[in-house]
């Protein structure tokens, strides 16, 4: 199977330059990076992709038994990066893709020169024993899964015409409609369960690359306590608290997000 097709890879920027790989997070596809990617195309080979099962990926490649842990997604990133012959990779992971980035860097330390973790959380569920606050308890997780299920039809039926009819913002186009509407509900459900039940706290100390942790303001998915935990546990970590509110700074405040990543990269150069 052609990995480029399987992950609907978009390659822009300077081919052969140090690479930046942008991993989309929970509920998102590569289109979410559309405001950030262009800012790094002058000096990077920028690679956007979709996880198998979401966005424009080849959904037929989705095997529920294989994609039953985040390592499987992390392995995909490693394979894809090798297949594309990328070098000096800055691996950017948003939301759950931040932990995929951690796992990928742990599995292939030579491949990934730096990590940028946007709104990361190593564990979404509170851990009463250690006092860790992830922001969710088990009931919250179950309710969220229920909510995703009951709103699926809402997305596919009602949203498509709304987006399509948005004539003054043509850049949204067909892709965004598809990315939201085409995700198979069973795949979305398994991915959501995986996202919110994974615990990767033990992987963090093994990250050997310089890492930027981007923490948003009032992020209910990844609260301050979760971001701080990630920052404290990764040996060479830089902490930036964005003014951007919510969980999608790359969409809502792309300029601030770009500036933070840029100054992290400049400081390393």
């Amino acid at each position: 199977m052609d990995l480029v097709q399987r992950h609907a890879v978009t390659r822009t920027g300077r081919l052969g330059a140090p690479a930046m790989v942008l991993g989309p997070g929970f509920g998102c596809d590569q289109d979410m990076w559309r405001h950030v990617a262009p800012a790094f195309e002058s000096d990077h080979e920028v690679v956007r992709f979709d996880h198998v099962g979401s966005g424009q990926s080849d959904v037929s490649a989705y095997d529920p038994e294989h994609y039953d842990d985040l390592q499987a997604y992390a392995d995909d990133i490693v394979l894809l990066s090798r297949e594309l012959g990328l070098r000096d990779i800055v691996l950017v992971g948003h939301s759950v893709a931040a932990m995929m980035a951690v796992l990928a860097q742990r599995a292939a330390p030579d491949l990934f020169a730096a990590l940028v973790l946007v709104g990361p959380s190593a564990c979404y569920v509170d851990d009463l024993e250690t006092g860790y606050v992830g922001g969710f308890d088990e009931r919250d997780v179950e309710e969220l899964l229920e909510l995703l299920g009951s709103n699926y039809l809402g997305w596919s039926r009602s949203m498509a015409p709304v987006i399509m009819g948005n004539a003054d913002r043509p850049e949204l186009g067909q892709e965004l409609t598809d990315s939201f509407c085409r995700t198979d509900p069973d795949v979305a459900r398994q991915f959501a369960r995986l996202t919110f039940t994974s615990d990767n706290r033990a992987d963090l100390p093994h990250v050997s690359a310089p890492t930027l942790v981007l923490q948003c303001t009032d992020d209910t998915i990844a609260p301050l306590s979760a971001g701080r935990y990630v920052h404290d546990a990764i040996p060479d970590s830089t902490w930036v608290h964005l003014d951007a509110v919510g969980h999608l700074p790359h969409l809502s405040s792309p300029d601030e997000t770009i500036a933070a990543i840029r100054s992290f990269l400049d400081a390393r150069a």
């Binding site: 969710f136 309710e143 209910t220 998915i221 969980h247």
Partner: peptide, 17 residues
């Protein structure tokens, strides 16, 4: 909290776009 999480990941991007 579930609805809040859903709002941030799904509703907000849809509202913005």
């Amino acid at each position: 909290r579930a609805a809040r999480a859903y709002g941030q990941t799904h509703l907000r991007p849809m509202l913005l776009t």
